[in-house]
Amino acid sequence: AEDTGLRVELAEEDDGKKSSIALRLWVEDPKKLKGKYKDNGVIEFSLDLINENPEDVAQEMIDSGFFHESDAKLLGKSIRDRVSLIKWKREKQCPVLV
């Protein structure tokens, strides 16, 4: 995935069955962000892989004051990339479930 300056990782083991999964996100390179960034640390959250859009979660983070509006795309992309990877891994492991 493209280096967005943001890192998104699994915050729990993926059993491949749950639709909602815990993720954690943090800023590795604040210089890549357009908006002013206040060091918040690691943000842990859960996301429904099937029913939720990564972009919506990104917007909620902005609304909560973690990031600036101008980084919405970057944030959404970072989460989406990780979600795609999780889905791809699930598909590889158990194509029937996905």
Partner: peptide, 27 residues
């Protein structure tokens, strides 16, 4: 700081904790 903060937004819960040093040094 070492505190963990919980922020609620539109039914979602964000748990915020400090970034461990080791994470920042990861390649």
């Amino acid at each position: 700081g070492t505190t963990t903060q919980v922020v609620h937004s539109a039914g979602r819960r964000f748990i915020v904790s400090p970034v461990p040093e080791a994470r920042l040094k990861e390649p």
